[in-house]
Design a protein around this nucleic acid. Structure first.
Lengths: 113, 113
DNA sequence: CGGTATCCTTGACGATACTG
DNA sequence: CAGTATCGTCAAGGATACCG
């Protein structure tokens, strides 16, 4: 059926969009870190095991471009930079919860075998 | 706090596990296609825009190794191969729904600007 | 029909050093 | 402190052709 096919194509596109914005190894961990209260570059960096500055820097830019986080320059002495999650970012909460939940189950499953 | 940190590390690990199994451009679309009733290699291939045989072949193997789909050889004339989702695969339903839902919202958001 | 083989490009990710 | 520069590796993904 044509209508069914269109629906299916829509689903695929939606999921591929999500994967583009949130996919990869680091984007969600970074968001979680900022969400958890880390604001400064080095704070975030230290909170996430094994991430390098280079990768963190690139991912922060990607997330900023996609409106999930905000970068603020605070004109103090010395100047500070703060990263915060945007209101829009709260929308991903459910996605994250489901992914976390499934990931845990999957690890258990593999562990039991 | 140490306990808080451990929780956070656990979350990160769970999400990275999920990303490893379901991440990338094609794995979820392929599962959706099989879930939607496509069983044969070429059926699946045609149902997903722009996927190549090579990529489909690799992804099917990855999904089979991770117990999400099952490959069955049907000893008919000629021999047929059928792919089906496993019971375990049903567990990802919620993840998929949330990703689909968020992806649609995100596309709208970008479209409206 | 259900893939492989071959070749290629791109991007993700990493290590290390350095800088205003 | 908040990155950038440089260099390198590996995997994802793509194009095209071919095969039993």
């Amino acid at each position: 059926m044509v209508i069914e096919e269109e629906k299916f194509r829509g689903k695929i596109q939606a999921i591929q969009d999500t994967m583009y914005v949130l996919g990869g190894k680091w984007k969600l961990p970074i968001i979680l870190s900022i969400f958890g209260g880390n604001k400064r570059f080095n704070e975030i960096s230290k909170s996430i095991p094994n991430i390098t500055n280079r990768v963190l820097s690139k991912e922060l830019k990607h997330l900023e471009e996609n409106l999930l986080i905000k970068r603020t320059v605070i004109d103090d002495y010395p100047v500070r930079i703060e990263y915060t999650v945007t209101a829009y970012c709260f929308g991903i909460e459910k996605v994250v919860k489901q992914m976390e939940s499934w990931g845990k189950k999957h690890r258990e499953k593999l562990g039991l075998k």
